[in-house]
Structures are given as structure tokens and as C-alpha cells.
């Protein structure tokens, strides 16, 4: 089985090498064919691993997004014009976000689109515009050599695909494919962390009779049933039907859960992330304020710089 990955890697390396920008003419079509064959082979192989189970994710979207992501990624590294690279990278981000949706990580998907595609990529585009030659340069085939010609493409492809070969061998070396593990019971999570979400659900379903405005209202699980309590001897037992379970689970979304996890298990990490952002902001300002020495056209850019700040 491992040999399959090695062949695929060699094939993929050939494909990427062929499509990378170069001064010499290369049979690009051959590269496209080799790439398609590699990707198709890999996906066919993974499809053979897919198994039947009661729980799981529809696979079609996975394949669509993977193909999109990989093709866009190849274009990112092979397109001679940085603007297009950046736009293809937006495509990669969108595909990855789609893949997150298949993984039930809705918040992450949208965060990815908003932050990456929206914020970071726009910054890249700004910088590309600021620091590139005019588009006419590319049309007249006078694009700078550092965009026209890839640097040591053969060695890079070899190394990159050797990495991929090793990684894929490791990924598929486990005997049993790993299947999703269920998350913690939503009702337990709700009782422990967000009890205030339960009451509206219960009221909406007309499942509770005791005074829900009581300040001491608490919930707990007992023998598979939900117990609402407003003090000793004033308990109400609520049988958890599957409808009720689902309603409670739905009342706590992915954002709630990520937020809880983030602020319960990774508080220090959040603080550190904030510090890193602050420091990088300070650093960026310091860099931008710096006077350029040695550049011929330094004075021309001064105005732009002031505006950026």
C-alpha cells in the first residue's frame, strides 16, 4: 500500500514541477494530466477506505472541497503573477471553510472566511499593489525575473513530495481508520455550563411545571432524567424524550461550545494571543514609521507611508 503513495508522490512531484513557472517551455499539459492522475488516484484510494456506519459525514462535499483546495493551492504556487496567487489563495481558504462545515465547525468556517479571506488577504493585496510593478509589465512579458522563474523547482518538488509521501504513509499506517467520537452529552454540558439555556427550551415544550423564576432553580441529572430543583423537597422530574434532548442540544451552538472551551481551558492562551497581537501591532507601527535609507525613490513613498499610518 505504501508503494502506492510513493508512486503518487513521484507523479505529483512531476506534475508540480511541470506547472511551476519557468523560462523554458515545458509540456504543461503533461503536468496537468499527471496532477489529475495523482489526485484522482489518492482520492480513489481514500474512497476505498470509507466505511458504512450509522453516524458520519456526507462525503461528496469533502471530495469537492478537497479537489478545489488542492487545485487552487497548485495555482497559488504556480501562477507567475502575485495578485492571482493571492486570489487563488482566497479560493483555498473558501474550500477549507467548506471543509470545516463538513466537520460541523461552523464558527471556525466563518471565522476563516472573515479573518483570512476578508482581513488578511486584503492586506496582502494592498501590499502586492504597493510593492509590485504595474500590470502592463506582465503583459509585455517583462515581469521581473523573480516572478517569472521558479527557484530550484526540482529540488523543492522532491523535498515537498517526499514530505507528503512520509506524511501520507504515516496517516494511513494505522490499522483501523479513525472514526468520529461523540461529543459530550449536550444535556450534561447544558446543566454544567449553561443552565440558563435549558429553561426556555423546557417552557417552549411545556415540559416544566414548577416556578422557573425562582432564584434557586437548579438542574441535575438523575437516572437518565432531568431534575429541576428549587430547594429541598421541591424537585420536579422531567423525562428526557429524544425531542427534548435534541431541543436542548440545539440550544447550545458551536459558538457557545467553542467559547466555553476557549475561556475555560485556554484562558492563558487567550491572554497570550492578545499580547502577541498587541506586540505585533506595536512592531508594525515601528516598522512603518522607520525612514528608509538607501532607496532611490524613498521620498516618493513617504506620502503613502504617512497615509498608511
Amino acid at each position: 500500500m505504501a508503494y502506492g503513495f510513493y508512486i503518487a508522490s513521484v507523479c505529483g512531484a512531476l506534475a508540480v514541477w511541470l506547472v511551476l513557472p519557468s523560462d523554458r517551455r515545458k509540456p504543461i499539459m503533461l503536468g496537468v494530466i499527471a496532477g489529475a492522475a495523482t489526485l484522482g488516484g489518492l482520492l480513489l484510494h481514500t474512497a476505498s477506505l470509507a466505511y458504512d456506519a450509522e453516524q458520519g459525514t456526507p462525503s461528496l462535499y469533502y471530495y469537492i472541497f478537497t479537489v478545489l483546495a488542492v487545485l487552487s493551492a497548485v495555482r497559488v504556487i504556480s501562477h507567475p503573477r502575485p495578485v492571482y496567487s493571492a486570489l487563488y489563495f482566497v479560493m483555498v481558504v473558501l474550500s477549507v471553510a467548506g471543509m470545516f462545515l463538513t466537520l460541523e465547525a461552523e464558527f471556525m468556517a466563518f471565522a476563516m472566511i472573515i479573518i483570512y479571506a476578508g482581513a488578511i488577504l486584503v492586506t496582502y493585496l494592498f501590499v502586492i499593489m504597493l510593492a509590485s510593478l504595474p500590470p502592463s509589465a506582465y503583459e509585455s512579458h517583462e515581469a521581473p525575473a523573480y516572478d517569472r522563474v521558479a527557484r530550484e523547482p526540482f529540488l523543492a518538488c522532491f523535498v515537498g513530495f517526499a514530505l507528503l509521501a512520509v506524511l501520507s504513509s504515516i496517516i494511513f499506517s494505522s490499522v483501523d481508520p479513525i472514526t468520529p467520537r461523540p461529543e459530550r452529552d449536550a444535556v450534561t454540558v447544558a446543566i454544567e455550563q449553561m443552565p440558563d439555556r435549558i429553561t426556555p427550551v423546557l417552557l417552549a415544550q411545556n415540559a416544566i411545571n414548577i416556578d422557573t423564576n425562582h432564584p434557586d432553580l437548579t438542574y441535575r441529572m438523575e437516572e437518565g432524567a432531568l431534575i429541576a430543583s428549587i430547594g429541598i423537597g421541591a424537585d420536579e422530574r422531567i423525562e428526557l424524550t429524544s425531542d427534548l434532548r435534541e431541543a436542548i442540544a440545539n440550544s447550545i451552538g458551536n459558538i457557545d461550545r467553542v467559547g466555553l472551551n476557549l475561556f475555560e481551558s485556554h484562558t492563558l492562551g487567550i491572554e497570550l494571543a492578545g499580547v502577541i497581537l498587541l506586540v505585533s501591532m506595536v512592531g508594525a507601527i515601528v516598522i512603518a514609521k522607520r525612514k528608509v535609507t538607501g532607496g532611490n525613490e524613498a521620498s516618493r513613498h513617504e506620502g503613502t507611508e504617512a497615509e498608511v499610518i
Partner: peptide
């Protein structure tokens, strides 16, 4: 209906990572 395993997603991640490495090494 077909279902997926973790390995699928890891493979996608690995491909993206490897292509990133290649791009980093070749583009000037």
C-alpha cells in the same frame, strides 16, 4: 452513502502543507 474517516482530512491537510512547502521553497 459513503462516510469519512479522520485520515481523509489529514491527507488533505498534508497535501496543502506540502504544497505550501514547495511554494515557499521555489517562489522568489
Amino acid at each position: 452513502m459513503e462516510y469519512l474517516t479522520l485520515n481523509h482530512y489529514l491527507l488533505t491537510g498534508a497535501i496543502l502543507f506540502a504544497l505550501g512547502v514547495i511554494g515557499f521553497a521555489t517562489r522568489r
